[in-house]
Design a protein around this nucleic acid. Structure first.
Length: 669
DNA sequence: TAACGCTCGTTTTTT
DNA sequence: ACGAGCGTTA
């Protein structure tokens, strides 16, 4: 407590009722949450098993766990729950699966599975999968808003929505038949469960006697409802958030949940954390001025006593090439001159595509870098294949996994056989897997084909037994050998090098599984649970983090930078149509773009520089660029312009040309 | 079943 | 401009 400032102390010790902590960037919100957990246990005598802390990312949960652990004796924190929303939901479903109609070992469908499934339904129902993406988005937003298929159907006002609602209905039924849930269900199903079974809700409310929620501005409608249900009655909770750092509205986040809280809990107490322990006051002034352009319900202004600091630089570059070159050279010279490690520097950008050229320039100057984001490990072919084997192993009803795996490697089971199998299975309400060795099927199918199906099923059944009895990891390793997956990978890779890489991923995946099983504190984790965790990305990050210490310039999107800090920050591409992004200008969601810039600025501890290009190649042609309007909004006395021409004039032009730019981008369309 | 050519898009992505 | 993904074709 002694090391906290008065506001933070207040936030920690207030337990009289619902509490909202508006925590500005770098104001020590993680300290507040972790200290509060310790306070609840040590000062208030609440046992750890009754305390639940919820975050959005595995990383945040892990960090929080570690920090709480260092504040408490081991025994005191035993039973404490610190998890992501999705993990909490998963645990609720796992414990209550019977009431929700799921069997143990249910699968979690990822983005790819969902897309395949919806596309499949569209094909069947509408003889074409045109508009899958739109339907997918619609279903997602319905789920985020807790609208179930029936309600969606009733609510649909136009043909498009009606189509989506019908697909949604089929989609949800199919998931159930596959004994599977999607990411949204991990929140939605617990909410449904609690609404329909008050006695179950009561049980959980008794378990969750104090709830803490991090990054509250990022909650969506169903997450908020889950929170509300859990705290109902007792109203003992603390949520921490910052409306100015809400950058996920496009994903369903509802920053207005911050406001809603005041209506739903009139006794809500609000504490603002405005002292920043990260940045120089110049950087904070800059951030404050920028964000003041957004409307606010809670006025807050960050300040710090870290000194005034250096001027913030705005660097105008000839083109995108010069921009990247400039950043690379500057980091190189700074590193050589001052011996600061490369990891002190971060390069932030709006879109991943901006990273390409930057990467090349860093490589050219032999500057080590670390790139975060990009193609997901789980999007890789070999990872999906293996994951499907795992899933089918623990959940034989998972038709998606079955179909993915049945001919990988080739088992000479063609589309005609699969179609017959599919028809037979759906007539009898069986899964594809279960239908394989049905007597009735052999009447409809030549024995050559049924034999192949049966052989596959026998193998998987035997493997499942092997898994349950002995070392599951050993079983999975031998599976990779049995099916000669390596041969398949080599056949389907462009080069030996690529094949080696892909096999590396295969073994990495199995290793990750092994580590999770071993590292589980209680030692009670089943292979099913480990696989579920794998889909939720947990542990994988843990593994990657172990290799993380390496020195290197950090490159990432502005979105990915939230929650991080760096001594020196470069924000590149400060141009109209990039930041703010063109589509945001068109959709009139400038405010979120401004928050994105705000997040970027507040990542910097000491040095901050913006770069922009006067012209850049885009969509195949060289276009003139306007400096971002956000540069014009900042205070001129704190900015130091570099680069040819009278740059500030150009900014004025950008301001005056706002309307023109809007028309221009419309014309382009 | 592979290969070729065409079309289309080209923001962010915690789980 | 360029590549990914898809559909057609041999």
């Amino acid at each position: 407590m002694s090391r906290l400032n008065p506001r933070q102390q207040e936030a920690v010790s207030y337990i009289g009722g619902p509490l909202l902590v508006l925590a500005g960037a770098g104001s020590g919100k993680t300290s507040v949450i972790t200290r509060k957990i310790a306070y609840l246990i040590q000062q208030c005598g609440i046992r750890a098993q009754y305390i639940y802390a919820v975050t959005f990312t595995n990383k945040a949960a892990r960090e929080m766990k570690a920090r709480v652990g260092s504040l408490l004796r081991g025994a005191e924190s035993k039973g404490l729950t610190v998890s992501t929303f999705h993990n909490l939901g998963l645990n609720i479903i796992r414990k209550e699966h019977a009431k929700l109609g799921y069997k143990p070992g249910f699968s979690i469908f990822d983005e790819g599975d969902i897309k395949a499934l919806v596309s499949d339904i569209m094909q069947k129902e509408y003889a074409g999968d045109d508009g899958t993406d739109e339907v997918l988005r619609q279903i997602g937003s319905w789920k985020n808003d807790l609208i179930l298929p029936d309600a969606a159907l009733a609510k649909a006002r136009n043909p498009k929505e009606q189509t989506a609602a019908v697909v949604y209905l089929h989609y949800q039924r199919t998931l159930k038949a596959y004994n599977a849930v999607d990411f949204d269900d991990l929140i939605l199903q617990p909410v449904k469960l609690f609404q329909e079974h008050p006695e179950v809700l009561e049980k959980w409310q008794n378990r969750v006697r104090y709830l803490l929620v991090d990054e509250y501005q990022d909650t969506n409608a169903s997450q908020y409802l889950l929170v509300k249900l859990l705290v109902q009655g007792r109203a003992q909770f603390t949520v921490v958030g910052d409306d100015d750092q809400s950058i996920y509205a496009w994903r369903g986040a509802r920053p207005e949940n911050l406001m809603q809280l005041k209506e739903d809990f009139p006794s809500l107490k609000v504490v603002m954390l405005e002292q920043n322990y990260r940045s120089t006051s110049r950087i904070l002034k800059c951030a404050n001025i920028l964000i003041a352009n957004n409307p606010h319900v809670f006025e807050k202004e960050l300040w710090s006593d870290m000194g005034h600091g250096d001027a913030i630089r705005v660097i105008r570059c000839r083109n995108e090439d010069a921009e990247c070159e400039r950043i690379a050279l500057e980091i190189l010279t700074e590193h050589l001159k001052t011996d600061r490690p490369y990891s002190d520097f971060a390069i932030l950008y709006r879109g991943n595509y901006q990273a390409k050229l930057m990467e090349l320039k860093l490589q050219h100057h032999q500057i080590p870098y670390r790139l975060s984001g990009g193609t997901s490990f789980f999007a890789r072919q070999e990872v999906k294949d293996l994951m499907s084997y795992f899933r089918l192993l623990v959940n034989p009803d998972d038709d998606n996994a079955f179909l993915r795996v049945i001919n990988v490697p080739r088992r000479e089971i063609g589309s005609a056989t699969l179609e017959k199998l599919g028809n037979y299975a759906s007539e009898r309400d069986l899964s594809l897997y279960a239908a394989c060795d049905e007597i009735g099927l052999s009447a409809q199918l030549d024995s050559r084909f049924t034999e192949r199906l049966v052989r596959f099923k026998r193998y998987m059944d035997q493997l499942r037994q092997h898994c349950a009895q002995n070392e599951p990891i050993a079983a999975l390793r031998s599976m990779v050998m049995d099916i000669d997956y390596e041969h398949w990978v080599r056949q389907n890779s462009s080069s030996d090098k690529a094949a080696d890489f892909r096999m590396g991923n295969v073994w990495f995946l199995i290793d990750a599984l092994k580590n999770t099983l071993e590292k589980d504190e209680d030692g009670a984790m089943t292979i099913e649970q480990a696989i579920a965790k794998l889909v939720l990305r947990d542990m994988l990050e843990r593994q990657q983090e172990e290799q993380e210490g390496a020195d290197g310039v950090q490159m990432m999107t502005l979105h990915a930078s939230k929650g991080l800090e760096f001594p020196s920050v470069y924000i590149m591409g400060m141009e109209e149509d990039i930041l703010p992004h063109r589509s945001s200008i068109e959709a009139d969601t400038i405010e979120e773009e401004r928050r994105l810039a705000y997040v970027g600025i507040t990542r910097a501890r000491r040095n901050l520089a913006f770069t922009f290009a006067a012209r850049r190649k885009q969509y195949g042609e060289v276009l003139d660029c306007l400096p971002s309007r956000f540069l014009a909004e900042l205070s001129a006395d704190d900015l130091q312009w570099e680069g040819q021409e009278d740059a500030p004039v150009a900014v004025k032009a950008a301001r005056g040309n706002e309307a023109l730019a809007g028309i221009r981008s419309l014309l382009k369309k």
